[in-house]
Design a protein around this nucleic acid. Structure first.
Lengths: 138, 138
DNA sequence: TTGCGTGCAAAGGTTTTGCATGGCA
DNA sequence: TGCCATGCAAAACCTTTGCACGCAA
């Protein structure tokens, strides 16, 4: 679909290129804004908000709601159509993908036994990563 | 630990009693504030914030980060030490508990194969509940 | 030329903080 | 009496909106 009535601007391209260049990174709007400034791109904060929102609504970005109050939402490039769960360490903030058969099996169980259709792309599992768990045990 | 230097006030008791009286409900600070007003309790909004924050930090409440930007965080009474996952419908906002053996099995898998210690109390699975899924199929 | 995109400023909402007052122990 | 809690107002924070201008098509 050619998105009738949409203009291609240097700002929109810059925002998409920024996320595309580091598909593993989860950026806030503010971080994206600063990254563009650092790259010599002058883009208004409002425009970054709007560009990210548009990319999110088009399915090009994933959105992770903030965990603590006062934090900002994080966005990440959505390289593939296939969605997968993410796990996030509540201590160091690291976020990683999770693709394995057990996730699929668990999602099927949710559908069959609980009538719940899991949206993997929007869900983040919170907990402790290995390194932080070992530190906290010390 | 007897919480040295802590006073017991009618406001704090009222906030805790409110959540305790409906352990299944997830309330925002604003909703809690209005509920107290409706019950004839005059409690300042700031005090509700502070009481909820204190209860949360003491482990008496669970906190669910807002899903959409602009929404408020939700809190729920934490009746038992045992924690369980929650599922939330992204369409109607319904939130339900999830306790079953599959969750435990999945959590063990995360620990063994991914080195990730799942924090069930903080994690919310997003997706569609049965009713909303059927509506969206229509 | 048309109309969407931009960006500044201002508003919107939630949550926190400053500070004088009130109340528990 | 000492110290914490309260609550109003104001601030901080992220995010959205209004509006005049700029720019792609």
């Amino acid at each position: 679909m050619p998105q009738r009535g949409r203009y291609q601007t240097r700002q929109q391209e810059a925002v998409e290129a920024l996320f595309c260049a580091a598909p593993h990174r989860c950026l806030t709007v503010e971080e994206a804004h600063r990254a563009l400034e650092g790259g010599g791109m002058e883009v208004g904060r409002t425009t970054v908000y709007r560009a990210i929102t548009r990319l999110y609504e088009a399915g090009r970005l994933r959105r992770y709601a903030p965990q603590e109050s006062g934090e900002a939402a994080r966005y990440q490039y959505n390289p593939c159509r296939e969605s997968h769960l993410h796990i996030r360490c509540t201590r160091c903030g690291a976020m990683e993908h999770l693709h394995c058969g057990e996730v699929e099996a668990f999602a099927r169980h949710l559908g069959h036994d609980h009538g719940f259709t899991l949206d993997e792309a929007q869900t983040v599992l919170y907990g402790l990563c290995d390194a932080c768990r070992q530190q906290s045990v010390k």
